[in-house]
Structures are given as structure tokens and as C-alpha cells.
Amino acid sequence: MKTDFDITLDEWICVCISRQVIDGEVLAQGINTPLVMAGFILAKLTHAPRIRFASAIGQSVCDDWGPLGVGRIEEVWLSKGLFHAGFATATAELLPKYNPKEFFRPAQIDAAGNTNNIAFGRDYQRPRMRLPGTGGIPDVTPYSDHIYLYVPRHSPVTFVERVDFISGLGHRADRQRGSGPRYLVSDLGQFDWDQGQMRLISYHPHTTIEQIQRKTGFPLLIASDIHATPAPTPDEIRLLREVIDPLDVRKLETLSGSARKDLLRSILEREHAL
């Protein structure tokens, strides 16, 4: 399809996340996951006006939202919260009650949807690279049946034959409860799981099935009705760029190196938080 605007990688991800949202549900807004925040707000402004947010910042439930930020994002969630539970109550009571849909960002994932956010390298005492940690992923993945995932930069570093540590529990026959991840979106395509194996269901038009397979460290199942991901509408793109995220915070997840550093500095400057 010919469009008169260039859709960027971050926008493919945001729009796919938005389309996974069902009106009326509660969605968990994590910390430093702007692609997810933008996608959820896009859903609220298009097909899902009655969704609510459970925000990690401020540990609240919010009906309202504000534009994305870095240095001022705390202000959004503290001013919109209906009440503020604190993280202990949020973890032990709020999450079990509302069972919010959340998109986690794995550092590694295998074909069964087991994920790792602990470290790269199997030697726990001296890993190749220590990662920040797992938050609540090992807590909810053993019982949840609606785990969703996103990967901003699809590569064989993330999609691996075997994860170094299992911090998120995938599709396993011996699990007591829950189901393993339902859905994954990357900058290349959308995936689900078929009998416990990751399956490509759509490819973004800027790539091909072969390219996606080459960038995935295990054989992918291919859905029988595989198709190009439906393009974002002009209205979705306008909302993302002008209303939800005029500062381009979402792009911090897809950029790297000096381009990312420059963007971060410019966002903070415009927020008066440098």
C-alpha cells in the first residue's frame, strides 16, 4: 500500500500494541516502556475509550493519560491517579484483583516463550552482562494466561535457541497454571504461539518472512494465513506524532548510540528537566 508518510519502526510497534487492546480492560503501564505507553493511549483514543491504566509510577489506577515524557513523566501519573496504593499493595493486591494486560520486553526469548531479563551468559556469578533485573516477571508468568511481549529490535541476540536464565515462564507442559505468552510484536512482525511454539502471523511490509527467520535464532512456525501487517492509518500516525508523543519519547526504544543520546538530551531540554 502506498502512503504519503513514512511509518517508522516504533510506529509499527505502537500501532500493533494498540490493536491488541480490548475496550474496558485494565492495562499495566510499566516504567520506561514508552512504546507500550504510546500504544495503550492510542487504543484509548481510537477503539478502546474505556480502558484504564495501572501505573507503576505512582502505583495507581488512572482513567486519564498525558503525553509521554522522561523528566516529567512522574507528574503525569501522580496527577492522574484515582488513588495511590504503594508498590506493596500494588504487587500483592492490585495486580491479582485487576489482572492487567502488560507488555514485557524480554532481553532473550526462546521458541517456547521462556524469557530472560537477568543476565547474558550462563555463569550467574560472572555473567557476560548483568541486566537490571526482572521486576515482577517471574511472579506473574507462572500463573497468568495473558502475557504479551514486545521486542523493539529483532535480532538473534534476543531470539535464541536457549535462554541463559528462565525468568519468565513460557509454554510448558508441566506448568501448574497459566499459559505462556499469547502474543509478541517486534519491529519486523507479529507472532503468537501454536501448541507451545512461536509462530509468525504477520510481517511488516518493510521486511520479508525470510529476513525475519534469518534474524531469529530458532525455526519459526509460519501461520497458514501469513500476511503483511495491516498498515497504520493516517489518523493513528497523526495521534502518535502530534497528540500522544510529540517529544518522540517512544523512539528511545528503537534508537541506539549517539542518535539515542541526542534524542534523550533534546527531550529533557524541552521538558526543562536537563
Binding site: 504487587t91 500483592a92 548483568r130 526482572t134 511472579d139
Partner: peptide
């Protein structure tokens, strides 16, 4: 933290939201 953890200079008790809260 990242540097010292990779060099085995820290003892990390792997925690999660639930393990800390409970």
C-alpha cells in the same frame, strides 16, 4: 552495578516484586 556484577564483586540475592513485598 553492571560492572561489578559482571566481575563477581557483588553478592546478588535475585529478587522480584513479590519476593521483596512478601
Amino acid at each position: 552495578f553492571t560492572h561489578k556484577a559482571a566481575h563477581g564483586e557483588l553478592r546478588i540475592l535475585e529478587e522480584t516484586e513479590t519476593s521483596l513485598v512478601l
